[in-house]
Design a protein around this nucleic acid. Sequence first.
DNA 1: TTGAAAGCGCTAACAC
DNA 2: GTGTTAGCGCTTTCAA
Lengths: 336, 336
Amino acid sequence: MQPKIKDVARLAGVSVTTVSRVLNGEKYVKDDLKHKVNLAIEELGYAPSHIARSLVRNKTNLIGVIVPDITSSFYATILSSIEEAASANDYNLLVCNISEDIDKEFKYLHVFQEMRVEGIIIMHEKINVEIRGFIHKMKIPVIFSSVKPMDQQFVSVIVDDYQAAYDATVYLIELGHEAIGFIGGDMRDITSGQNRYSGYRNALTDRGIRIVHEHIRFGDYKVQSGYEQMKELLRTNQPPTAVFAVSDDMAVGAMNCIRDNKLSVPEDISIMGFDGSQLTELTRPTLTSMEQPIHEMGKVTMRTLLNQVESGEVPTGDIILEHRLVARESCRARDL
Amino acid sequence: MQPKIKDVARLAGVSVTTVSRVLNGEKYVKDDLKHKVNLAIEELGYAPSHIARSLVRNKTNLIGVIVPDITSSFYATILSSIEEAASANDYNLLVCNISEDIDKEFKYLHVFQEMRVEGIIIMHEKINVEIRGFIHKMKIPVIFSSVKPMDQQFVSVIVDDYQAAYDATVYLIELGHEAIGFIGGDMRDITSGQNRYSGYRNALTDRGIRIVHEHIRFGDYKVQSGYEQMKELLRTNQPPTAVFAVSDDMAVGAMNCIRDNKLSVPEDISIMGFDGSQLTELTRPTLTSMEQPIHEMGKVTMRTLLNQVESGEVPTGDIILEHRLVARESCRARDL
DNA sequence: TTGAAAGCGCTAACAC
DNA sequence: GTGTTAGCGCTTTCAA
């Protein structure tokens, strides 16, 4: 059994209050007593119980995080900067990795509530009615990072998906491409999926390029689906000369598919990714990508949430971060 | 303020004891009372405070995890299976991502102690004397996953690094390679680094192949260092025809370096990785790798730790999992 | 079957 | 400056 404050008090020959005082760095403790107490603490290897403290202070310093897939470089990077910001502010992270498992998300939200976490970060937008309702009832500050659920009540830290996709498409157009394929995300993803798709379409339309339905496919953001959707694009009568995949993972899948079919990136087909994950620099050719400021996204998410937790200020709306196209080797001007 | 058990009791017209009983699924509660209580719980949106429970039950259901780098696919994958196992057993994870920052590790161990976590998983072997001492004093079950610190007192879930490296090297030898380069891990890594290095050396020696010092380099397990060390290997008088990198990340760096120098894998140089991370399937050519059973490693780690937590059984020694060479495209027989 | 009350380890009035 | 004591929200004897 761990030593308690009482044990320290006894050993130091003072009251528990005094021990509590030195523990919490209060003044009004004579130096010699303070010294005795510290000695006792040291000797016993005493560490105050966060549990008991939380109970009386009504404060847990816990933040719950729900990640859809921690093995994805994109989410792992956001998570790492979230963790960094949390740690710097003396908050700890309760992490839940829900791999597509909505039930698990629901279960964890309950756990978060029981744990009395002070805030929740969700990086996942497929929340159903049940979950939506539960979140509202919980009355714990919730913030979405890198995703935006349909519910206008929630605040998200995101990029302007529409504009980012628009810009990415324009970039390909300006490289001379006209047959530009699209590998979108799940269209049930209420916002990112749809907004990126609209950005792509409008960019084409605005530049007077006809939309070819055959060239539009949808995956699930993962490598494998990029591979499969690319396979379909290659099967079309007139395969595109450039493809915009709305995640780097899918872009990598697409590149691999192209290569496995004895074609080359970017010689035969240019590939544009989305996210700016670590993969962009790992592939050969390196991947041109419409990047989200991943690291900043984590930081801003945490900062905004903690601000709400500590000062009660509810953000007035979504926080839009700047997207940025980083040109690497996977896209090039179309041969004319 | 969240509703408390008292509120539920009042609303249901029973005592707190009764509420507690239905909360904990005890018998000896008449059905109608049980029903009333559940109604009150529902109406108030009541969730029992895990904090208060922990205090009285002296049980937190918390496991602390220290990951060196969550953005690495290898650790992320272990972490995800650890999380899965934890969740399945109703434990929650407090995650700390220490990026090389030993102070942060120390800080987190303190936090873990204050939080009264019931067990700690560490995936990092560079523990210093101070940390070692602290861990021993803490008296919380600690288990190392995928790494083995020098201290014999700790138990690790690992593969046989020596044998795995030996087998990987033999594989390359049997493909006809003699000039086999080695990109090792940090040799200050007391065990994995050294054991893999010994495995490599002994395999060569046992097969009567001379060890070429120029062909031996050391990185830090990350992509970038693989790239740089490969650059050095290419600069040698007689570059190797095969290279064994002791992490997939370094292997990918090495492959990229080779490609950036207008050479081909495996035509000019074969590359062998280590770990079996997701990268192996993402690269082109795909990466032959001496794989650790990553997923199982997480599961076994958690299972062993929970067993110790719940039954007090201390594992008698390290738990060695099977390594497995998975041949893909990056290695091939040397042209003679 | 049910309830009263003690106590988990700590903090924070309040009193001295 | 220091100590006494009443809770924080729950579980768990013990008694009824």
